[in-house]
């Protein structure tokens, strides 16, 4: 449990850092500190925590559904599919409220993710690398389609915004949709056993009395909704869903009833940490959290591929 304490402590430290660090000095006395905190810093901190938790949880669910640790939503086309939906609604009804945009994005994200799930059933399981490769190609095709449509309709700027997750634009009133993730995380906790059983494979899942199809649909729907909310509010952040569940799996194993909270917490730590670092390195300018995480995440992932797996856990 010592490692767990470390994670909680880390998050607490990062929350304080996130509230204190920014372009303006909240201790200078020139500005209304309370206002800055309430309008900008607190929403930004919550946004990073929620997005991080959501990305990590969406990652582990995706991995369990297709029984492969090397995939995550951004490697199976989920954010790209969400972007296609966002483009469509932006073209058809540019003035639609955010919730409508998010709903459309979630729908196309679900269709896109389910398409990958069908594709995954046809990929031979012998080599675990085949599935992520298939997913990358699939995501590439969806991404290219989105970029093409954006190009001919002059919306490439939007694609760029949706693609690079960052939190500098988060203000009170503009991030609250992310709280949907908190609700979905609770729902996921009730499904934890079922999602773990999915990881045993379809034969075991069904012979253990699980309604396999229904559980897969439910899992993918949660993934699609989480990713869509994140893409709409702060932009996509690749690899969080890959790195975090892998770290947790190595240290604590795959029993999700026990580990979902840790996965959510660690996702929050990584994304909030990336955001805080992004605010510091070129102060007073900012580097997107997704960029920072891509660097940190890549290093961690390479390390993960090489370290010997732990032999046992409680």
């Amino acid at each position: 449990m010592k490692k767990m304490t470390l994670v909680v402590l880390g998050l607490a430290l990062l929350i304080s850092a996130s509230l204190l660090i920014g372009a303006t000095n909240i201790f200078s006395g020139d500005l209304d500190t309370g206002l800055i905190l309430a309008v900008s810093r607190v929403p930004r901190t919550f946004a990073a925590i929620l997005a991080g938790a959501g990305l990590a949880l969406a990652g582990v669910v995706t991995q369990q559904v297709v029984q492969n640790r090397l995939v995550e939503p951004s490697l199976v086309g989920t954010p790209e599919a969400a972007m296609i939906g966002l483009l469509a609604i932006t073209l058809i009804a540019p003035g639609a409220p955010v919730i409508a945009k998010m709903s459309v994005a979630a729908t196309t994200a679900l269709i896109g993710t389910f398409g990958f799930f069908l594709l995954a059933r046809m990929v031979p399981r012998r080599d675990p690398m085949l599935l992520p490769l298939t997913g990358m190609i699939y995501a590439g095709i969806l991404g290219a389609a989105a970029t093409y449509v954006a190009w001919i309709t002059d919306l490439v700027q939007y694609i760029n915004i949706w693609q690079s997750g960052e939190f500098s634009g988060v203000l009170r009133g503009r991030y609250e949709l992310l709280w949907i993730i908190a609700a979905l995380a609770v729902a996921l906790y009730f499904l934890a056993d079922r999602i773990t059983i999915l990881g045993l494979g379809e034969d075991y899942a069904r012979s253990l009395g699980l309604n396999y199809r229904q559980t897969v649909y439910l899992g993918l729907a949660i993934v699609a909704l989480m990713v869509a909310v994140i893409v709409v509010t702060v932009g996509a952040m690749p690899f969080v869903g890959l790195v975090v569940p892998n770290i947790v799996s190595r240290i604590w194993g795959d029993n999700l009833r026990r580990n979902l909270p840790i996965i959510a917490l660690l996702g929050a730590v990584f994304v909030l940490g990336s955001d805080v670092i992004g605010r510091i390195v070129r102060w007073p300018y900012e580097i997107p959290a997704a960029t920072i995480f891509a660097i940190v995440g890549a290093v961690i992932f390479l390390w993960l591929l090489n370290v010997r797996k732990a032999g046992s856990h409680g």
Partner: peptide, 9 residues
């Protein structure tokens, strides 16, 4: 057995 074994005790 089908390749991926979950990390369960």
């Amino acid at each position: 057995s089908q390749g991926a074994v979950p990390r369960l005790s």
